[in-house]
Design a protein around this nucleic acid. Structure first.
Lengths: 383, 383
DNA sequence: CCGCTTTCTTCGCACTGTGAAGAAAGCGGG
DNA sequence: CCCGCTTTCTTCACAGTGCGAAGAAAGCGG
């Protein structure tokens, strides 16, 4: 059971994973620095690094400037060691991308979907798409779908856009493709991407909010995506703002989504005789007071909802994404004001509010990252 | 650096901790069963168990009934191996208890505190109290205080009842006592106790709500207390129920605490010409409609707040504690109805709602458990 | 060229994991 | 009572990987 060098194999042992993770996330560094950061003795590192170099997972990347003695050899993670595929299933199409181990998109493909597709039909399309993208060593596939997903069991519990209920995803897919498959709620995938490669990098605890058709939220706690008991965490869109408010499509009254979503903006736009949201946004930017207050109201409502999240979870940051962030200039000031106003001071003081960095690519990068992270996951017991 | 047998020492190595944890939490079992559950080979277990027996951490506890072959020897954790001390600092007194490693209270002491005590004064009292309780091997001391606590740094950030701000607690205390000290928010300590020894045992994700003078919440995610960025997680009492509601002592409007706390009940009691809450509760139980609706209203408000928690965190259970649970019969039905009503069905379906099991002792048991759990914590790297 | 620093490697040893083989303990049938 | 069967636990030799100590390699500066 020795290491069959050069072969694709799961990383064995804690410390091996620890070293690779340090190189993945804290950039190139010397063996000595690795030794300090990991707490391992330099002797052990020499042996481990020799193996990792032989396997191609890491590379020597020139020498560091001298500190008065022998110059340190920089070791770097090799993002081209392998790649993963990330997929987003939408109502009418599949978006897919092959992504390297550092989160960079290498190739991409879009394929259309028929109306109300069956699970097997979608899996087949995904299969073709992945084969299309397959190049070099592909470690696995991650799929993002809107709705309720139990990612640990690989099941789509409920997808409104595809009208699926309790559909097994990862089982059939990994059998079809011959490589591991993962499935995750799309906003969670986006959140993971921002966590690893985007605005969430500096934070151990943050919440990623998406504003668009609905309101989504991905929650990162202790550095990891938090799913809740069965994948239903982060239903920010349906917290109650006003028990006497208007009816929401979910059946309750006064949900946040009623006051802060594209639906709200569209309703208001029509009421104010604008053809669509874009029109109203333009007017707002040209000084139309009514249009301005519409966006401001939405910002305020969103802020009130987010304040609850801040009070409950005490995150370090809020990361805002989603399509409506195009008009961030029109509602962000009110949002921020509301979040910080009267929030428990201790909590809100250090709260950072920033925009997502990866845009719509984040969905694909995050989906691919499901496979990547699982590959590099530290094994919990020494094997 | 070999194991100096019989000596008090930190548990080294993952698997050693894993085995002890299995015996601590899953009751007595044979070496063979341990081998199955841990994934370790039986040969390794023999060696490890020999060491643990020699150290007195575990014991042989008779034999199991036969399965058709040699009868299995049951191994059990030894809760008398050592003890820890749990302390709750209140406005006028200190409550303390020595607790064994299974969460059973062995001895207890109460000592009064002067008005507005200085940190050093309190530490001195704690020191005397712990010396009083010191018997056998005491692994450490845990302290629970209401208010904002940064438990990872051992600092009381803000305690309204003691008028402390940014007071270092664990540093001075552990120097004074010569054993490790921990500090934690009191409701978090209670939550930990319920997690380990009470109603929260079966759950990996749950929220413990306390209803009384204020509303407190302790959050357990992935089986562990969640603190947030700096200990401020779980501020359920100050989520906004109604932006236009009455002013709260925190400065915001329409906080949950305004609608569901002893303060609310007292106000209503006076308005209805009852002398106090107990009186009103009695009347409610005797059929007084006005008194009944007062409690029912509180239950409904609490339920609305809790629904937000359920939507955001998707826990498996809510555990309800605090002094006001004396009157649980008067508000629990409305509470439960409201939590489940219109909550996203998937989320609420499997939600369990139950009462805390440990009562006021939970604060002490949980505080002591801070020391206990830290002693048994799995080391993250093999040492 | 020599000494000094820093970086990395080699070496032997200890701990703890593994599988294979065997000893120990209990059941039940002839 | 003995023998075979099962299950449980132990012993043994070996491998992987951690450690510290010592030393080699590489660069700086006089």
């Amino acid at each position: 059971m020795g290491p069959t060098k050069g072969d694709l194999q799961l990383l064995r042992g804690h410390n091996r994973g620890l070293i690779v993770d340090l190189l993945r996330h804290r950039g190139p560094m010397s063996r000595t620095k690795l030794s300090h950061l990991s707490g391992l003795a330099p002797s052990g590192l020499t042996r481990m690094v020799r193996d990792l170099l032989a396997e191609g997972l890491i590379q020597e990347q020139g020498k560091c400037c001298s500190h008065g003695g022998r110059r340190a050899v920089l070791l770097g993670f090799n993002p081209s060691y392998a790649s993963t595929v990330g997929i987003k299933v939408e109502r009418t199409r599949i978006r897919a991308a092959r992504v390297d181990l550092a989160g960079k998109i290498l190739d991409r493909v879009d394929v259309p979907l028929p109306d109300a597709p069956s699970p097997d039909g979608v899996f087949e399309r995904i299969g073709e798409t992945v084969e299309d993208l397959r190049r070099g060593r592909v470690l696995g596939v991650g799929v993002g779908i809107s709705g309720l997903v139990d990612s640990s069991r690989g099941i789509d519990l409920y997808s409104p856009i595809l009208a699926w209920r309790h559909v097994e995803v990862t089982g059939p897919l990994s059998r079809l493709l011959g490589i591991p498959a993962w499935v995750e709620n799309d906003v969670n995938a986006l959140t993971l991407a921002e966590r690893l490669y985007g605005a969430g990098r500096p934070f151990r605890h943050f919440v990623c909010l998406t504003v668009g058709e609905g309101i989504g939220a991905g929650v990162v706690l202790q550095g990891e995506l938090y799913h809740g008991a069965f994948g239903g965490a982060g239903e920010l869109g349906h917290i109650t703002m006003d028990p006497q408010g208007p009816l929401c499509r979910c059946g309750a009254r006064g949900c946040l989504e009623v006051y802060a979503s594209d639906g709200y903006l569209e309703t208001q736009a029509h009421r104010l005789d604008f053809t669509d949201i874009a029109c109203m946004a333009k007017a707002a930017r040209n000084g139309c007071e009514l249009a301005r207050t519409t966006f401001a109201e939405m910002g305020r409502s969103l802020g009130q909802g987010a304040k609850n999240v801040v009070n409950l979870l005490n995150p370090e940051a809020l990361v805002l994404g989603g399509e409506r962030m195009e008009d961030a200039d029109l509602f962000l000031p009110e949002f921020e004001h509301e979040v910080r106003r009267n929030a428990f001071p201790e909590e809100a003081r250090d709260l950072t509010i920033l925009s997502a960095e990866l845009g719509a690519d984040g969905f694909l990068i995050g989906a691919a990252a499901l496979a990547t992270e699982s590959f590099f996951q530290l094994p919990l017991e020494a094997a």
